[in-house]
Design a protein around this nucleic acid. Structure first.
Length: 302
DNA sequence: CATACGTGGGC
DNA sequence: TGCCCAAGTAT
């Protein structure tokens, strides 16, 4: 059974696109003057961090580093510091590494090709498609958690998509992609917006949904999720929490930090040491001398 | 393919 | 109060 037979695609397109035209949020990375670099910065920050918290960080970041070359010229530790409390600070390191690669391999211009984007540090399937689509108006299936949820409901009549992206989901997304590049690019961001504002994970606002009348899940009576339990993220008491505390000290200290300052953040020495070792292994923290640490600096000139 | 990886806000 | 979730990526 093909997607084409189950969903009136032209009607779906026009309905979602009209809804988007009327209800899209006015986000800075969607402004016409947003550069591909700005779009890329927003995508890194939005990987698992809500829009509201990204907004101020995005503005400050681009003010300081308006181009990939500007960021690449600074120390990676500065990127980690500017990242602040967005979470998952490895993203800051990867964004810095991506800026370096763009500067060295692409003449300082964010590549417009999906494969070249995918080759950059921290750029996976989603981000490559998002940058190619949003910044360069290319035709790509953009499958993020919002889009996957919308398609799961509208097309597959289930409340939630599978844990990991499947080939079937890619087929569906591709089959639903409008033909024209420009339309496909707007479609991608429009479906994402619908998932973010209306077709939400917890309590979808089906009453205000423009496609409720053609939503397979809705038409099936909104059956509850039946798959395997969606495992939550553990945090309290884990290495992640300790890493967060350690890195917070490093971020707020401009310069070197002593072992004693780091020891103060966690009582249990084995876990504390393991967390610190992990940060060093990830390149987020740099040992300077015995018992002295700092955020990573520029590599020695040579 | 499952797991590690931060942080904070909403209900 | 907790539990759930937020424009994922790398291993």
């Amino acid at each position: 059974m093909s997607v084409e037979t189950a969903v009136p695609i032209p009607l779906l397109h026009s309905t979602v696109l009209e809804w988007y035209a009327a209800h899209a949020r006015d986000l800075p990375w969607r402004a016409p003057e947003a550069t591909p670099w700005a779009v890329m910065v927003s995508e890194f920050m939005l990987q698992q961090t809500p829009v509201k918290r990204v907004l101020p960080a995005y503005t400050a970041w681009l003010e300081r580093w308006p181009t990939p070359a500007a960021l690449a010229a600074d120390a990676p530790g500065e990127a980690v510091r500017m990242w602040g409390r967005l979470g998952y600070p490895r993203r800051a390191l990867r964004l810095h590494a991506a800026a370096t690669a763009i500067t060295e391999r692409h003449g300082g211009e964010v590549p417009d090709d999906h494969a070249e984007l995918l080759a950059l540090p921290g750029v996976g399937e989603y981000t490559a498609a998002a940058v190619a689509s949003f910044a360069f108006r290319r035709r790509h299936a953009v499958l993020d958690t919002n889009v996957r949820r919308v398609f799961a409901r509208v097309v597959d009549a289930v409340e939630y998509p599978p844990t990991a992206t499947t080939a079937a989901e890619r087929r569906t997304a591709t089959a639903l992609l409008p033909e024209a590049d420009e339309t496909a690019a707007t479609w991608a961001v429009a479906v994402m917006e619908l998932g973010a504002l209306v077709c939400t994970a917890r309590t979808p606002r089906c009453g205000g949904c423009p496609v409720a009348a053609m939503c397979a899940w809705r038409l099936a009576g909104s059956p509850p999720y039946e798959g395997p339990p969606r495992r939550g993220q553990t945090y309290a008491g884990t290495d992640r929490q300790v890493r967060g505390k350690l890195l917070a000290v490093l971020r707020e200290a401009h310069g070197e930090v002593s072992q004693a300052e780091l020891d103060a953040v966690w009582h249990e020495p084995v876990q504390r040491a393991r967390a610190l070792d992990g940060l060093v292994a990830d390149g987020l923290v740099e040992p300077v001398a015995q018992g002295v640490y700092r955020l990573p600096g520029a590599p020695a000139a040579g």
